[in-house]
Nucleic acid binder design. Sequence first.
DNA 1: CCTACCGATCGGTAGG
DNA 2: CCTACCGATCGGTAGG
Lengths: 213, 213
Amino acid sequence: MAALTMTDMTVPSAADAPPVAPTSGEEGNRRGDIIRAAGRLFRQKGYNGTTIRDIADAVGMRSGSPFYHFKSKHEILFTVTTEGIEVMLRNLEMVIAKGQPARECFEDCVATHMNYLLGPGRDFAWVMLYESRLLDPAERAIVHRMSARYEEVFSAVLDRLQASGHLHDASAVARKLILGAINWSAQWYDETGASDPQAIARQLCALVLHEKN
Amino acid sequence: MAALTMTDMTVPSAADAPPVAPTSGEEGNRRGDIIRAAGRLFRQKGYNGTTIRDIADAVGMRSGSPFYHFKSKHEILFTVTTEGIEVMLRNLEMVIAKGQPARECFEDCVATHMNYLLGPGRDFAWVMLYESRLLDPAERAIVHRMSARYEEVFSAVLDRLQASGHLHDASAVARKLILGAINWSAQWYDETGASDPQAIARQLCALVLHEKN
DNA sequence: CCTACCGATCGGTAGG
DNA sequence: CCTACCGATCGGTAGG
């Protein structure tokens, strides 16, 4: 479960060069390449519809080579999935640490969630949402625990929203409904080239919140 | 695209008995058996994670026999998918035909949608929502057209809701957000044994609507 | 709807 | 990270 921190990868020094020259003219971190390619393919064709050969092709490897970096296809799925939740949870906690008023905090949380979901986290978040159920029970339990942690934190935001009179219902069902509206956007964002994530987040807030001016 | 009408299947007369005696002691419609078993398996393990042998086993056939009823595995997926949308669209149009006031109509639509999604349509609706993207482009286009038709009808309901002052935003994005909150319930309904579909529908309405008493 | 089967493909490994 | 390969499984078919 070690964070992949692919987000903050910077240009590595020449000393990091792998022992064997990479196929492309790039630097290192072939492991990260595999994860990113796998994420994209898993989203497009599903986990079971993607072969190790697809992934290897996408990063310019031969079919046996991904197993030098991961011990199984399942481990690739697990890594993509946890990358997805970890980033989302980290983002959420950073927003909350700002200590904004309830309403501003909520809108910021939603916007941040959507910015990742529809932007850089497109593949990772999608795989977490729709493919992680194909993991083994033990792995799925870990993922489930992390998702539960996310909801727990999000729940506190909703509680404050209710206390400030902006939200009437902060129950578990209401929380699921709101998160559903948010997460579902990954399904339709592409086809409607319309709004940006930020704007969608604002519309969601307006839909659910009661203004107190 | 012919409706399967598995919903209104009743006890067939003895004259409908298949030429070859079925393995189990039951009546007919092995095709319907296959569709139902496939729906359940596709939801549990995904389309690509389900084999023809899984489906055949589930209905007590040998692995080659499903191809007597369907010309390919894809055709099974397509049939399950269209069954899902057709029923949902039919249900929606029946509710609208009642001619209720905007607010009552909306709540009825949501409740009906959720009753099918979380009840008898669990497998069909799930496959439509999450597995139909694995269809061929041509088949997917048909499914997409039917979903668009559903949204179109649903959109008219939202427009009336806006006209009556119960909803501020009836835009395409708002529609997607509302449908997302509804559809996402299929993801969490099982684990939280709490509310029934009806109650969830009511909470969704309260969350989104402005009361005008 | 069964028997018997096929060609293709898949995840994964040994050995370097 | 490549070469070369394996056993298992898969969707689908011929013929009855």
